[in-house]
Design a protein around this nucleic acid. Sequence first.
DNA 1: GCCGAATGCCCAA
DNA 2: TGGGCCTTCGGCG
Length: 266
Amino acid sequence: MPEGHTIHRLARDHHRWFAGAPVTLTSPQGRFEEGASALSGRTVRAVEAYGKHLFYVFEDGPVLHVHLGLFGRYRMRKRPAPELRGAPRLVLGNDEREVRLSGPTACEILTRAEQKAIFARLGPDPLRPRAPGKRFVDTVVESRRQAGAAILDQAVVAGIGNVYRSELLFRIGVHPATPCREVPRAQWARLWTDARQLLDLGVRLNRIVTVDPTERGQRTARKLARGERVYVYRRPTCLRCGSRIETLTVYQRKAYACPRCQPRPS
DNA sequence: GCCGAATGCCCAA
DNA sequence: TGGGCCTTCGGCG
């Protein structure tokens, strides 16, 4: 489930589990054998996330960069772990536990300079403290693109994926096809604040929940049942008003909108 | 068992 | 704009 919240949650967990002591790395699948043996036995200084990118900073410089892409996935096991079927790209662990990574788009060793270059091409990440929301707003208010394209572009804002895209636009009542410049600045500022809060909730719950629980008669987001955690994403009808959900392609991906809660631009 | 879709992104044309 | 990469899973027979 790799949007920004997933990656930040992984960074938090992996930092707690592995930072400050040596780890061992192997590549049962084989495609990261050289990298794994180059890093194995070294100490992880910190694990950090930026947008959808995950970085393990090792002492003395090298950085393990992981990007899950659409299919990548981690599984955690306590050690000693039984032999398992399947051959993950990377197994990283210590005496206590291991994490098994399969299907990533990227699993590679970078220099710190290369890591900084990735940071430099990403927009502000709402999950990072002191992220410059103003930079995001300044970019989108001037953009000639559709709102649904701009906020999925990682150079504009880092960490929003296809689920949060549709949900965030729903929550400010903006149709994904609306030209950015038709959305008032204050609305964009609201979307940024909303993104921070929703993604942060996503990290804590380890799950995407965008629905206000009071709308469903619940006190907390945690209590929402499957089927009432999003308003429009992949739903047949709007969770708020029951209208049939419209689907459209924006920026190469399927977007979802409620024609009543998010009127199309004129 | 097969097929298509999926919370992503890169590259060629 | 379209295809490729990579893996898992649910729906369909």
